[in-house]
Write a protein that binds this DNA or RNA. Sequence first.
DNA 1: GACAATGCCTTACGGCATAAGGCTATCAGC
DNA 2: GCTGATAGCCTTATGCCGTAAGGCATTGTC
Lengths: 238, 238
Amino acid sequence: MALLWRGGEQPEEVRPGPKPALSVDVIVEAAIEVADREGMAALSMRKVGERLGRTGMALYTYVPNKGELIDLMYDRVLAELPTKYDVSAGWRPAVASWAGHTLDFYLRHPWVLQVSQARPVLGPNEFAALESVVAILRGTGLGPRRTRGVVALLFDFVRGAARTVTESRLAPSATGVSDEEWWRTRSHLLEEVAPGFAERYPMVAWVESQDDEAGEDDTFTMGLNVLLDGLEATIAKG
Amino acid sequence: MALLWRGGEQPEEVRPGPKPALSVDVIVEAAIEVADREGMAALSMRKVGERLGRTGMALYTYVPNKGELIDLMYDRVLAELPTKYDVSAGWRPAVASWAGHTLDFYLRHPWVLQVSQARPVLGPNEFAALESVVAILRGTGLGPRRTRGVVALLFDFVRGAARTVTESRLAPSATGVSDEEWWRTRSHLLEEVAPGFAERYPMVAWVESQDDEAGEDDTFTMGLNVLLDGLEATIAKG
DNA sequence: GACAATGCCTTACGGCATAAGGCTATCAGC
DNA sequence: GCTGATAGCCTTATGCCGTAAGGCATTGTC
């Protein structure tokens, strides 16, 4: 917690003992690289230490434990998000832009989705991220209560969409099988193991049938538009 | 995979060797109890084995590995969900009812939220759950593509809401501190560590200010209504 | 009774977070 | 330059985890 909010530079008091060769910052950076590349499950103190030419235990000089390291990673990476959005064209394009940036962010750092969200880590950049959406919604005339609800809805949607994308990306790469191949194999298995699938689950069969609609935009954009329409209706109702 | 779809009873061929004292079903049941009570992180083969008076290794006679056990737990627990919703009053109350049931379900089994969702486990009850929402939406006239998008949005919203609730419940109980106390301590720390918080994050301060609106319904109901309004608009637009 | 198969066990390996204690480089004060 | 304290980093150890390997006793068929 204190580490999260530590100011620019500490007074740098002169102390006996060897100079620190590492720093909280380089450790956090190395840890983020590991998590970005290999995922949260593969993140271990030893691995981060090795990347810095140290043992895992060396990190405990700088960081009290793995949990706090993750908090630091989380807040650090949140700094990538824009903090201001142009609302001159209204809240709608601004929210759409926010959603897009936030989705990209989660796709860049999928492990972030595994950091607790209900109980926020409460770092400076987390508040900044929250600040940016609320600032957009401020112009809608919604009260704080409704704004909170809408913010939660927006975050849930974006995070859910990100989770869907990243999880479907991760699973096959682990086994070295292509995505398409994976689905084909799965379908074959399904037919073998559950004959009469289409009769048993007619709605599922229908919903997964070939597209009959025009429109090339993806699931994300679609869901976002539904959501924005709902927001518009909510605002209109006062 | 085969275990997921295994039919009612196997032919029960007579085999040499000791009679199995356990079964896949009792193992899955025991594992669910552990996960419900102590969370996914505390679920281990040894712990499930102990609950059944066995070692952890004994389970490997019935289940190939932990991952498949989790798949089985997942599909088993999904059987709790209703499969049919009354659409005689229109899709809106039916979807609302579905969302409520599904939220309760996730709150009952929070660990389910940690089972991969993009790459579904593809068990029978997962398809049944999907079938139930799509059946409701079938009456709206939406095509398969849009329906898919709406289903994703609905699931993302409900899962996000559930995650928010369960994670905020879990964190303090682990430390033995009450929820309220936790927030107060956190606030104190924040003031100490980040003076001028309200000036730095004016929007956050505003959105977290006291309620000025009437209405006693919670964040979930609010978000759901926004979402349903959006769905209504989408349907109206054809 | 011989033999094969099976449920369950113990042991072992390599991973994890992290507590404890030791070595050594580096400082302040003498 | 020496002494003593301190801090960075190490090795070692503890107790978890999933699971591979191999052993033993029970239970069936012939």
